[in-house]
């Protein structure tokens, strides 16, 4: 359902994406890993048009994603995004955050939107915090509200941009648990992450990016346990030494 073909992007003379090809089928979970500056977040942001790209095609259901075009709003309402820093609307309660898109973008009936939002808050384990404002919630709770807000649009896919990187370590688990459930339910997900255990357990495909290229991609087990490319080996070794994570 998402197709990326030969995408190039540069900021001035600095190349950020250098010929990215990637296909994501409906129901697939794809994790993008790689060192910072490798272009994974930029690639993700090209998929819902938060960034423009210079060459190539990004297609969602065969529709070309292009920033500043008339179709972009429609595509965005079908491809949701979860941000590293949550970006909840601070002047609205958790429940209002979740209802915002359905009521104002999809013009749903407010009562129906509220019922649906309440169900989603329950799903992310926050039915007791529906009327809290974002500044009254922990980072993990805020990110779960952000996931509920994304789900409320009933999206065909959700893009996650390092969803646990801004969280205290003890709060990472609750967010990953919600994401695991979504994956189990068959949600199409593209996840930029440094959580290798999550990638290994949940991803159907892992892509390793380096300097704007996908240097290695394949089934999670293969890429993470027996990486073929020296860059991947090097990256995983360093990550391992750092976090003490158990390798698959």
């Amino acid at each position: 359902m998402i197709e990326i073909k030969g995408v190039y992007k540069s900021y001035g003379s600095v190349a950020v994406l250098e010929g990215i090809d990637l296909q994501v089928k409906s129901g697939e979970v794809v994790c993008l890993i790689g060192p910072s500056g490798s272009g994974k977040s930029t690639l993700l942001r090209c998929i819902n048009g938060l960034e423009s790209y210079d060459q190539g095609d990004v297609l969602v259901n065969d529709e070309r994603v292009e920033r500043n075009t008339r179709t972009i709003h429609d595509i965005r309402s079908r491809v949701a995004m979860v941000f590293q820093r949550f970006n909840l609307f601070p002047h609205r309660t958790a429940l209002e955050n979740v209802m915002e898109g359905p009521i104002y973008v999809k013009k749903e009936n407010p009562q129906a939107a509220r019922r649906n939002a309440e169900a989603l808050m329950e799903k992310v384990g926050l039915s007791h915090r529906m009327n809290a404002y974002p500044d009254e919630l922990s980072g993990g709770q805020q990110q779960r509200v952000a996931i509920a807000r994304a789900l409320a649009m009933n999206p065909q896919a959700i893009l996650f941009d390092e969803p646990t990187s801004a969280l205290d370590p003890e709060l990472v688990g609750e967010v990953l648990a919600v994401m695991r459930n979504l994956a189990d339910e068959g949600m199409t997900m593209i996840v930029v992450t440094h959580e290798m255990a999550f990638a290994r357990d949940v991803a159907d495909k892992v892509c390793f990016l380096h300097s704007g290229k996908i240097v290695e991609s394949g089934p999670a087990g293969e890429v993470l346990s027996t990486p073929a490319h020296p860059r991947t080996q090097d990256f995983l070794r360093r990550l391992l030494n750092h976090s003490g994570e158990v390798q698959a």
Partner: peptide, 27 residues
Amino acid sequence: IQQGQIEAAESLGMRGAMVMRRVVLPQ
């Protein structure tokens, strides 16, 4: 207003005027 607020609103599919009215101006 932080850029992230605008991106979050845009990611819901909001158009410019609605981003202003619902997200930027109240804050």
